[in-house]
Design a protein around this nucleic acid. Structure first.
Length: 422
RNA sequence: GGAGAGGUGGCUGAGUUGGUCGAAGGCGACAGUCUUGAAAACUGUAGUCCCUUCACGGGGACCGUGGGUUCGAAUCCCACCCUCUCCGCCA
């Protein structure tokens, strides 16, 4: 959510921002509704002032004036009720339009309509060359008994999978290494609920626009597709201590995604599944653009360094306007090399929001002058499993079908190689 | 799932025969006095949001949330959410 005052005073900037994001929005219509809203609120406030004044007088009046005042106020009450009735639909429309207004993307965000126009800003590592015919992760992992897709779909349906044996060990090794790696960088580890109430999703901007991608329970909660939702909800309606900023949190949670609208994409393997696990970095910091930018770079760099520790070739892209979410100011995606697809695949997404989320979630702090400020929020994937296994397995495969374990993971894995059990 | 109790300002906690209650008291916080310094004591300040004003100020809203009754609601009624206690069930 943006500040209505900001929208009114900068409607060209807001409109241009929406256009850059390829989001269709009618700012003038919003301002028109807001004009009506303001006028009516002013009228209602004035009537209430009369009512309050009369109410005080009635309390101390003699019987005669009392009866007369009450009769007068009955009329005022009627008018007030009418005004409030008129205000109701206007407020509803105002709310609806306000949550549709996208945050303004940064100047440095490139133009473009879809992820095809994201711009590569960095590459790391050499694309893995194999002196033999390499295999894909599905074949490798199945042969090593690390995964069972057949029974996975038997149990869970489309996109189901079961990790087993070395697949499990490797997952835990990655989670443990990530926990150590990111905690050492000042992040406080947390295990977050995936099942969360609607306001968390509204606050983070996943609702109303992304509702069809969420699983919903019969009791009205939703299953989160990322721990970002719960981690941001953690401080909802709080006033944080300025000296506790920045708050750096590292959240683990199962993640659920319906993948509505991508039924024919990535139907094989561990790239796109309905249920996975993720460590997520979340930062709340003071409301300052430069601070947000600095932490954004830091978040993204953290994940890059983690991937470098795993030794997997990657590149980083800056997402174009059309590939940004409603609240995002700027976003970097880190994509890992997947040999058998011959392309980079997204593993991480780092974005900052300014106060777009915190305004909706009411997360504030008092600045040095004692003024209330909405904090700034940022988040980035630390590491998702099992998607990371796709690149790890394919890049580290050997001619005999075994998988060499990256050095950093070996102590957590308890071995340096995954070989076929005899 | 059944029975009961309750949700008030940073915290604690009064207020429930509706009318100067935005809300007593206590604690904490901040500023000052005292002190070599600190503590203690004493004095003073202080909620959030919206509208309006150059400013001083003025007006409105907020006592879990949303409705209702009333001239007027923290106080009465309804629904929902949450917390706590007991029973049942359960990893």
């Amino acid at each position: 959510m943006l500040d209505i005052k900001f929208i009114r005073e900068n409607k060209d900037i807001v409109a241009a921002g929406a256009k850059k994001k390829h989001i269709d929005i009618d700012i003038d219509a919003l301002i028109g509704v807001d004009d009506k809203r303001r006028a009516l609120v002013a009228e209602v406030d004035e009537l209430r002032a009369r009512q309050n004044k009369a109410s005080d007088e009635i309390a101390g009046a003699d019987e005669g004036t009392r009866v007369q005042k009450i009769a007068e106020m009955k009329v005022v009450k009627e008018i007030l009720a009418q005004k409030e009735e008129t205000l109701k639909p206007i407020m509803a429309e105002w709310q609806k339009r306000m949550v549709e207004v996208p945050n303004v993307p940064d100047m440095t965000v490139p133009e473009g309509e879809s992820d095809a126009e994201n711009q590569e800003i960095k590459t790391w590592g050499e694309k893995t060359q194999f002196p033999f015919q390499p295999k894909d992760h599905v074949e490798l992992m199945a042969a090593l008994g690390m995964v069972d897709f057949e029974r996975g779909t038997k149990i869970a349906g489309f996109r189901g999978y079961v990790l087993k044996d070395d697949g499990v060990l490797l997952s835990f090794a990655i989670w443990n290494l990530a926990l150590k790696f990111f905690a050492d960088r000042g992040f406080s580890p947390m295990i977050m609920p995936s099942l969360a109430r609607r306001e968390n999703f509204l606050g983070t901007g996943f609702i109303p626009q992304g509702e069809e991608d969420l699983y919903k329970t019969q009791d009205g909660e939703y299953l989160a597709g990322t721990a970002e939702v719960a981690t941001m909800g953690y401080h909802m309606d709080e006033v944080l201590q300025k000296e506790n900023l920045p708050k750096k949190m590292l959240s683990f949670s199962p993640c659920f995604r319906r993948e509505a609208g991508s039924h024919s994409r990535d139907v094989k393997g561990l790239i796109r599944v309905h249920e996975f696990y993720k460590w997520e970095q979340v930062i709340l910091c003071e409301a300052n653009h430069e601070t947000s930018v600095r932490f954004h770079e830091e978040l993204n760099r953290n994940t890059e360094e983690f991937i470098e520790l795993l030794g997997i070739p990657y590149h980083t892209v800056v997402n174009c306007g059309g590939d940004l979410g409603l609240g995002q100011v700027k976003k970097y995606d880190i994509e890992l090399w997947v040999p058998m697809e011959g392309k980079y695949r997204e593993i991480s997404s780092a974005s900052y929001f300014h106060d777009f989320q915190t305004r909706r979630l009411n997360i504030r702090y008092k600045d040095a002058e004692g003024k209330m400020q909405f904090a700034h929020s940022l988040n980035s994937t630390a590491i998702p499993t099992p998607r990371i296994l796709v690149s790890l397995i394919e890049n580290y495969q050997q001619e005999d079908g075994s998988i060499v374990i990256p050095e950093a993971l070996q102590s957590y894995m308890g071995k340096d190689k995954i070989v076929k059990k005899s």
